[in-house]
């Protein structure tokens, strides 16, 4: 039992380096007074009653900091394009072989698909009333498609519908922002009626639920494409080996 073989010298030196960095960072951070940064949040919380949204996080994501969300959705789109470039199979020569699938798994996953998609849609359209919203609901919908791919490897999504939904929701987001610019003189202005008395109802908040539904469609289609590429990859490999 040689200690040098179990724990090489390089690992010991690197752990000492990590500990030294940790101690120096802690020495800096312990001197900071930690409740200095409440000002912006207080301003947004005071303004939040005017947007008639029950969930303040939703109004920050889609209204006060809506430009950030546009950039975030762009980053998501670029990452999905990179994955499609890396994992798409344009040069494969082996032909498709129909793989044996289990009947019980197939039917069960189809039954569960509707329930999970319904739950995702519920999370999306209640984003301005309760915790949740477009990002979470879109990923829940993508997990439903992951279940479908695991149970039935011959399944394939229609890429034309996904592309159409993804690009139309992106264009609609920018259009909503531009209509707000022309009618209210600010980008992402809330041009739909949003009376403060209706706070807590399903139809309230003006454009905020509309924007979150568009974000939900975009995130859901992009995450479904990512999941499809990752599970199809294994399927193609097995088929080519056989």
């Amino acid at each position: 039992m040689n200690l040098k073989k179990v724990l090489p010298l390089k690992h010991i030196l690197l752990s000492i380096l990590s500990s030294a960095l940790l101690l120096s960072v802690l020495g800096l951070l312990m001197q900071v007074k930690t409740n200095l940064y409440k000002n912006v949040g207080d301003i947004f919380l005071n303004l939040n009653m005017q947007t008639a949204t029950a969930n303040a996080v939703t109004s920050v994501v889609t209204f006060f900091r809506g430009i950030d969300t546009v950039g975030e959705v762009t980053v998501l789109f670029l990452a999905t394009s990179g994955i499609a470039l890396m994992l798409s199979d344009t040069q494969r020569t082996c032909e498709k072989v129909v793989k044996q699938e289990s009947f019980i798994l197939n039917v069960g996953s189809r039954l569960l698909l509707s329930v999970i998609v319904l739950f995702g849609v519920y999370i999306i359209i209640h984003g301005h009333l309760s915790p949740g919203g477009g990002f979470q609901g879109g990923v829940v919908i993508a997990t439903a498609f992951l279940l479908l791919f695991l149970a039935n490897p011959n399944m394939s999504l229609s890429h034309s519908i996904l592309t159409l939904g993804e690009s139309l929701s992106g264009v609609a987001y920018v259009l909503v922002a531009l209509i707000g610019l022309f009618k209210m003189n600010i980008l992402l202005g809330n041009f739909l009626p949003h009376p403060i008395g209706e706070i807590g109802e399903l139809v309230s908040g003006g454009i905020i639920p509309v924007i979150y539904i568009l974000v939900g469609i975009k995130v859901g289609s992009e995450m479904s494409v990512i999941v499809e590429y990752f599970s199809k990859e294994d399927y193609y490999k097995e088929v080519c080996d056989a």
Partner: peptide, 26 residues
């Protein structure tokens, strides 16, 4: 932070693990 908790529950424990497991298959 219930919004962040919901996001982390869906992504950090669900889809991220699935993507990792599908990735180490290859």
């Amino acid at each position: 932070a219930p919004d962040v908790a919901l996001t982390e529950a869906v992504i950090g424990t669900g889809l991220s693990t699935a993507v990792f497991l599908l990735g180490i298959m290859h």
